[in-house]
């Protein structure tokens, strides 16, 4: 690599780091909604997402907002990460969880904490689907993203909602 290329590479890296740093909180939100469990995996996943973004940085051509591109890469990385680390964990009650919330959850809204707890009970596919729904996507968009029919998404979502209701009732 000649000096000019090195300088160019360095400049690109600095640009990338600055852009990623601006979206730092967005990456955290992806980690929490799609990939993290009740453990200390947030930092691991954060690093994995940053590396995945850097690996595919060349594919970002500036047509869309950087944050949109980042969100989509980060989400896929988080889902894959969750799938790999999908291990059975002991049940933790919502009350116990709330006591330790400060470690990994600083939202002032208790509903957000409850949401983290609820989606943490789902398997990888269901969590991905629920994450997209919570993220504001409509059924037809989710169907397109997951390569499934809209009816299949509705059915699965209905099943997930029933399951979440059951979990929540159990915690009361």
């Amino acid at each position: 690599m000649d000096k000019k290329t090195l300088v160019e590479e360095r400049r690109r890296q600095e640009q990338f780091v600055a852009q990623v740093q601006q979206c730092d909180a967005l990456i955290y939100s992806v980690c929490r909604l799609y990939g993290c469990r009740r453990d200390n995996s947030t930092e691991d996943l954060y690093q994995e997402i940053v590396c995945a973004l850097w690996e595919s940085y060349d594919s970002y051509n500036g047509d869309s907002k950087f944050s949109s591109w980042l969100y989509s890469v980060a989400r896929n990385t988080a889902v894959a990460y969750y799938r790999r680390h999908q291990l059975r964990q002991p049940e933790v009650s919502l009350t116990d969880l709330e006591r330790n919330f400060e470690d990994w959850h600083d939202s002032p809204d208790p509903l957000v904490g409850e949401l983290y707890y609820l989606i943490d009970q789902l398997n990888a596919d269901d969590r991905y689907l629920t994450g997209l729904y919570i993220d504001g996507y409509e059924y037809d968009e989710i169907a397109q993203m997951m390569n499934l029919s809209q009816q299949a998404i509705r059915t699965r979502m209905s099943r997930i909602k029933a399951r979440l209701k059951e979990i929540k009732d159990r915690q009361k």
């Binding site: 967005l26 939100s29 909604l33 939202s107 809204d109 509903l111 957000v112 409850e114 949401l115 609820l118 629920t130 729904y133 919570i134 993220d135 504001g136 209905s158 909602k161 029933a162 979440l164 209701k165 929540k168």
Partner: peptide, 17 residues
Amino acid sequence: TDELNLEPYRKAWKAEK
């Protein structure tokens, strides 16, 4: 209903994001 209403969570998440 037997299903959890996720709308409040959607709104909460939007604000959180």
